[in-house]
């Protein structure tokens, strides 16, 4: 039953042909710069051996605490960062080995929606120019066609065509996020990374944006990598969830399976931290974690969760646990403390 971590991608991914996006053994270490005295610094192991895949039309949720490497994965997938090791394969082509020009040509198919609706729009550009930028860069259509495309996109995200001539600061956070979505969709991508795309918004606006994202997915057959720390939102939108802790995947399963049957102690702790309206449901079995998340510059040995794990056994620290399949599409980092 035990499989090495390298084989997880395809193993977890049973149904439906080749995945659109396949991430294998992705590693990103950031050097810690030490100047003058003291010699070389260490490295921050932001992402350390992560594998997963996303099928066409699927939404994969990536959850974990702040600093666990979720956003780094999003940036690696888009080629905004170069990985230290590992590959990102998009539609059968390896993005990590591509030159700048080759990558630029692929870019219209991979897009991103950012967390911060204020930093993500150029304050000196009109909304119409922001949305049309991808079309201009990839030389799609003439001026009139681009204008028509912008108006169509604005309508699709629930804004008015007149908004094209206004500046970003004239909009609310939720409206700005809609502009960001329209920009991401302009080049008709297949795959969109939503990096905490609704986390900065009010709860009522969050629901609107999440619904918009689902609608667009249905209409256009989009795939999403939905990065979030908010399990309620992820549960609502994701087909499958990957749980990360300190740069590694600890568990991945179809959404309902994960919520019904979490295996890893960290996943259990994460799920029990979701506030419950219904007192009966929470049943007082909340797992409380003690201590801080260890520094990724000096991660714990073996199972990275062991210093905070309520079930940790001495063997936990000895060996890095492999991801093993425990049910259809459900894999977990098999720490000796529970398996």
């Amino acid at each position: 039953m035990t499989q090495p971590a390298t084989a997880t991608g395809p193993a977890v991914d049973q149904a439906g042909g080749a995945p659109l996006l396949d991430v294998t053994d992705l590693v990103k270490h950031f050097p810690i710069r030490r100047r003058a005295f003291g010699g070389g610094g260490g490295t921050v192991q932001a992402v350390d051996g992560v594998s997963f895949s996303v099928r066409r039309g699927e939404t994969v949720g990536l959850v974990g605490e702040s600093g666990c490497g979720k956003s780094t994965i999003g940036r690696l997938v888009l080629g905004l960062l170069r990985p230290t090791a590992g590959t990102v394969t998009f539609d059968g082509r390896d993005l990590t080995g591509m030159s700048r020009a080759e990558l630029a040509a692929q870019r219209r198919r991979l897009q991103i929606i950012f967390q911060d609706p204020f930093s993500s729009l150029d304050p000196r550009m009109k909304v119409g120019d922001i949305i049309a930028e991808g079309l201009i860069v990839h030389r799609i259509g003439d001026r009139a066609q681009r204008r028509a495309a912008v108006e169509r996109l604005l309508a699709q995200v629930g804004l008015s065509p007149r908004d094209a001539t206004r500046f970003p600061h004239q909009f609310s956070g939720g409206q700005r996020q809609r502009i960001g979505i329209a920009r991401a969709l302009a080049t008709d991508p297949d795959f969109v990374v939503c990096d905490e795309a609704v986390s900065a918004l009010d709860v009522s606006i969050q629901a609107q944006i999440v619904n918009l994202l689902r609608e667009l997915q249905r209409d256009r057959g989009l795939s999403y990598l939905f990065i979030s720390h908010d399990l309620n939102v992820v549960r609502y939108i994701a087909d499958r969830i990957c749980v990360m802790y300190l740069g590694q995947l600890v568990e991945t399963a179809p959404t309902e399976e994960l919520f019904a049957n979490p295996r890893h102690p960290y996943t259990q702790a994460l799920l029990s931290a979701i506030p419950q309206m219904d007192a009966e449901k929470s049943m007082g079995e909340r797992v409380r974690l003690t201590g801080e998340v260890p520094s990724p510059a000096n991660p714990p040995s073996g199972c990275r969760f062991h210093p905070r794990c309520p079930h940790a056994v001495p063997e936990s620290a000895a060996r890095r646990p492999d991801l093993v399949a425990v049910a259809e599409g459900h894999a977990v980092a098999a720490c000796p403390c529970f398996m």
């Binding site: 940036r75 888009l78 905004l80 630029a104 040509a105 870019r107 219209r108 991979l110 897009q111 991103i112 950012f114 967390q115 911060d116 930093s119 993500s120 729009l121 150029d122 930028e133 991808g134 860069v137 990839h138 960001g180 920009r183 080049t187």
Partner: peptide
């Protein structure tokens, strides 16, 4: 360091642009 620069990179904009 602003996100709109990352967005432009992802859109495929050249460095000069």
């Amino acid at each position: 360091s602003e996100d709109f620069i990352s967005a432009a990179v992802v859109l495929g904009a050249s460095r000069t642009r």
